[in-house]
């Protein structure tokens, strides 16, 4: 895949362009997560098509999903959304009896439902963030110190909610992202926001996590994807926070909407289905070479694709935090133990 900006993409496809739709949707709303944007783009794709059978719809979806997945360097989070949507369609379309409709027009009805409620999905997804916040705020107790990282909007919402309740005084230690990282901005925003809410925030680099851990009561992180065994895929550095928290006996909580649950079963860091160059071994000669070829390797950044930079750089890499390091996953359907994740997924897929 070569490098394109969203504008050139729009013109290059006469038919429906899923990728640019996806990017426009993402860019239009900073509060949107990747899976939900992907769902919206797929709904849009169905709207713009003339399909009227179940098989056609599913084919169309598979086709667009493939394009979408291959167009961005880190499709883990995105695929949670597309898979969920696909699965939802399959279950609903294959079970017309479960809908209280006439036998012949169920397909049209479900299609109309999808099309008319595209906005609603987004609203729901955002609402679930608020719901998580209302669950999660109980975890933060008066006088606690919370360690967090990344630009996760759910974590931001949770901390803000806790800050809003006037009786609580808590402190936040924020592990900053490197400046060139795509969620550095989001992180800065959360920090500024919390400070505006009178929450004392200390920002530390990755390297100071172990040092600060003695002052920390709990760790709360966001996640890009929650995998089948209950582990999470999240910004590089989360794994080491988990390891350190475990070794110090501090509770390590993950906040994630349940539409981020993804069917992956990574066993180690290097099982992730993405190509990231975190370990880049070099000898002196390699360093001298111009890095022109690197441009062709990846494109797009992990999350908001409004930037002009297009590499999945080391700063934007993700790592896998295994379930045994996680004390609880706070979702909109309650606080789950890592082992509950597989059950949620199994309920959908089997």
């Amino acid at each position: 895949m070569d490098l394109r900006t969203p504008t050139t993409e729009k013109t290059s496809f006469p038919a429906f362009d899923i990728v640019s739709t996806y990017r426009t949707i993402l860019a239009s709303d900073p509060d949107l997560t990747m899976p939900v944007a992907a769902i919206e783009a797929l709904v849009e794709a169905i709207a713009n098509s003339t399909v009227n059978t179940v098989a056609e719809t599913l084919d169309l979806l598979t086709y667009h999903t493939e394009i979408l997945k291959s167009s961005i360097p880190n499709p883990i989070s995105l695929s949670a959304g597309t898979d969920l949507f696909q699965r939802y369609l399959v279950t609903t379309l294959n079970r017309p009896a479960s809908l209280n409709l006439g036998p012949e027009d169920d397909f049209r009805a479900i299609r109309n439902h999808l099309l008319s409620n595209g906005r609603l999905f987004v609203e729901r997804a955002k609402a679930s963030r608020e719901k998580i916040a209302s669950f999660g705020k109980h975890f933060i107790r008066d006088g606690a110190t919370v360690l967090t990282n990344g630009g996760s909007r759910v974590v931001g919402a949770l901390l803000r909610r806790a800050a809003d309740s006037s009786t609580m005084r808590f402190k936040v230690i924020y592990v900053t992202s490197p400046e060139d990282c795509s969620d550095a901005q989001g992180g800065n925003k959360i920090v500024a926001d919390l400070r505006a809410h009178n929450v004392p925030v200390a920002t530390i680099p990755d390297s100071a996590v172990a040092y600060s851990l003695g002052k920390v009561d709990m760790v709360i992180v966001g996640a890009e994807g929650v995998v089948e065994n209950g582990g999470i895929i999240s910004r590089l550095g989360t794994y080491q926070m988990g390891l350190l928290a475990k070794s110090k006996g501090k509770p390590f909580y993950v906040v994630a909407e349940s539409h981020k649950f993804v069917r992956l079963y990574p066993l180690s860091q290097f099982d992730l289905p993405i190509d990231q160059k975190v370990l880049d071994f070099k000898v002196a000669e390699d360093v001298k070479k111009p890095n022109a070829e690197k441009l062709t390797e990846d494109e797009g950044v992990a999350d908001l694709n409004t930037f002009t930079t297009t590499h999945l750089r080391a700063a934007d890499a993700v790592d896998f935090t295994p379930p045994d390091l996680i004390s609880g996953i706070i979702t909109e359907s309650g606080v789950l133990t890592p082992s509950a994740v597989s059950e949620e997924l199994i309920k959908i897929w089997f």
């Binding site: 769902i39 079970r95 949620e344």
Partner: peptide, 16 residues
């Protein structure tokens, strides 16, 4: 299995 559709992960799709 029939009621299995009532799934929290599908929460965002459900009809109001």
């Amino acid at each position: 299995a029939g009621t299995g559709l009532t799934q929290s992960l599908f929460g965002i799709f459900s009809q109001p």
